[in-house]
Design a protein around this nucleic acid. Structure first.
Lengths: 157, 157
DNA sequence: GTCGTTGCAAAGACTTTGCATGTGA
DNA sequence: TCACATGCAAAGTCTTTGCAACGAC
């Protein structure tokens, strides 16, 4: 990431190499788009939307086509490299699925996203109960928290 | 609702009259759109998207304009009559906010939605903790469950 | 009659599809 | 080589905006 601007990055627990290894095990070609996406997700510190991805990569001088990105993300999701997340707006966001399961805290003003750890014992128990009571299979959950971050709060007050 | 098709309805705990009363207390005009929306939400048994609403009302012979619906829903949300819900797709859904807080179980195949009761003690505690730890105010949560309903499951297997 | 509401048309944001071209193994 | 991958253009879906016309009070 050169001057990737806006988005903040941090060293992730999964490297680009690890992601590329997953690709290889699925006998797909290692193209420049896949390499770029692997690096981006490895470094991203927040879920990414397609417009995000295209903007950041283009700013960094790696031209990518939005159609290709959409298609690639779908494949990555099918393989299990990434997972989609909904953060309250209409966009679809994606983040590494290789990480531990976690949830998000989103600032509804500036859209800043923080990862948070949540004790899931209770949730999983409810999942099991719901699955049983309602006769649903493969039940999973989506839990996100929304609020106003300190900075945004101090600006308004 | 005449032949409102596809969507399933049930007698809700809030009647059209109660919703109209909320309108009146906000000194707005009781137009045909507001009456139609009040009736629709009073009878809806699942969250509704704007395309849903327009389709259903037009099928029922009450022409409504999508722009008007978008604007009206925003006002209803501000007043607190309805609340928006995200159900995994890109659409925004709305449901009566006058009801008890509850969550949804969505079939990812047929999009059927069931309301479910969830023990929130734990969630609220986590909300408080997150709010404190991360310095966020006005924290709320969104929790939805996804799975495959019995019917869809039996079709595929 | 007023001013809140509405309807229409156009634009905008995100996503999907079809097809011809390009390229990694 | 050739099947997988890409890029472009066009279309699709949901949503927003601007503005003139309408209608509830």
């Amino acid at each position: 990431m050169t001057n990737a601007t806006q988005l903040r990055y941090y060293v992730h627990m999964h490297t680009q190499e690890e992601i590329l290894a997953v690709w290889r095990s699925h006998t797909v070609r290692l193209t420049k788009t896949r390499t770029a996406l692997a690096q981006l997700f490895a470094e991203a510190r927040a879920p990414l939307s397609v417009p995000d991805i295209v903007r950041v990569l283009c700013l960094g001088g790696r031209e990518v086509n939005k159609t290709t990105v959409y298609r690639e993300l779908e494949r990555m999701q099918n393989i299990g490299i990434i997972a989609s997340v909904h953060l309250g707006d209409r966009r679809q966001y994606y983040e590494l699925a290789l990480n531990d399961h976690h949830h998000h805290l989103v600032c509804v003003r500036c859209e800043r996203v923080e990862d948070i750890a949540v004790d899931e014992k209770n949730l999983l128990a409810q999942e099991a109960r719901v699955s049983c009571e309602k006769n649903f299979t493969s039940v999973r959950h989506a839990l996100e928290f929304f609020g106003v971050c300190k900075m945004c709060h101090s600006v308004t007050t």
